[in-house]
Computed example of a mutant assay.
Amino acid sequence: MKRFLILIGVALMLAGCTNEGGSETGQAQEENDGQKASSSSLVVKPAKLSKRENALVNQIGIDYQTFFTVDGKVAEGEALISSIDVYENGELINELTTQSTAEQNNKYKKALHSFQVRMGEEMNDLTIGGPDGYVAGQAQQPADVRAFLFEHPEESVTISKGETVYWAYLIGTNQSELSSRGTEDLKTLPPSVKKEDYAIVFKMELNKEK
């Protein structure tokens, strides 16, 4: 487990290099994202990793991951709260939660975040990464789950205070296959999450610091 956490830290550091070394085009896009996010709202968008960085992330043995950036300004005392919820047969059985506070002047500026899962035979390793580091936990893996489907968005989304965004999810079934459910409405929990045998939900909300 210790080795796994060290590797996660390395992956987050490598992925951050892409965001720190942005081109003029990337800087212009960053400014545009900042304009889209008004007071007490944030723009969340998928992070683009280079081929080399993707290869390095894949080599550390993470089965499912999503990297994304956060831009915008929030009010004093507010934070981005990130969670991984685990469901079995529609019931919430585990939750991993952390919060990220803004940098200078209550602003997030292309802040890199991530959700990651490493599947095991009996237990799954869960990680939430952010500019302040990461938190990790574990959730039991049902023995009879045979097929998995991972859904995550390719477009950006704006989070206002009090809203929850279901950024990505992993669902599993004891059947032989699953079909895509899509992620059209990121602010609504997909009904399939509670209908399938197993689900891991990656969500965020902008709210008061805990």
Rank of each mutant, 00 (worst) to 15 (best):
F68Y: 13
F68G: 02
T69I: 07
V70R: 03
V70T: 07
D71V: 00
G72F: 02
G72P: 04
E76K: 12
G77K: 09
G77D: 07
E78L: 12
E78M: 11
E78Q: 15
A79R: 06
I81V: 12
I81C: 09
S82N: 08
S83D: 11
S83Q: 13
D85P: 00
D85K: 12
D85A: 13
D85W: 05
V86G: 03
V86R: 02
Y87M: 02
E88I: 09
E88Q: 15
N89P: 00
N89M: 06
G90W: 08
L92W: 01
L92H: 04
E95V: 05
E95R: 15
L96E: 01
T98Q: 08
T98H: 03
Q99K: 05
Q99R: 04
Q99V: 02
S100Y: 06
A102I: 06
A102P: 10
E103A: 12
N105S: 11
N105H: 11
N106I: 04
Y108G: 02
Y108W: 11
K109Y: 10
K110I: 00
L112T: 09
L112P: 08
H113K: 02
H113V: 07
H113G: 03
S114C: 15
F115L: 08
Q116C: 13
Q116W: 03
V117W: 00
V117N: 01
R118E: 10
G120N: 03
E121P: 00
E122A: 12
N124A: 10
N124R: 00
D125W: 08
D125K: 03
L126S: 04
L126C: 09
T127I: 15
T127F: 07
G129D: 05
G129S: 10
P131I: 01
P131M: 08
P131G: 04
G133Q: 06
Y134R: 02
V135A: 02
V135S: 04
A136L: 04
A136D: 09
G137R: 01
G137P: 13
G137A: 01
Q138Y: 08
A139Y: 02
Q141R: 12
Q141N: 10
A143P: 00
V145G: 07
R146M: 14
R146N: 13
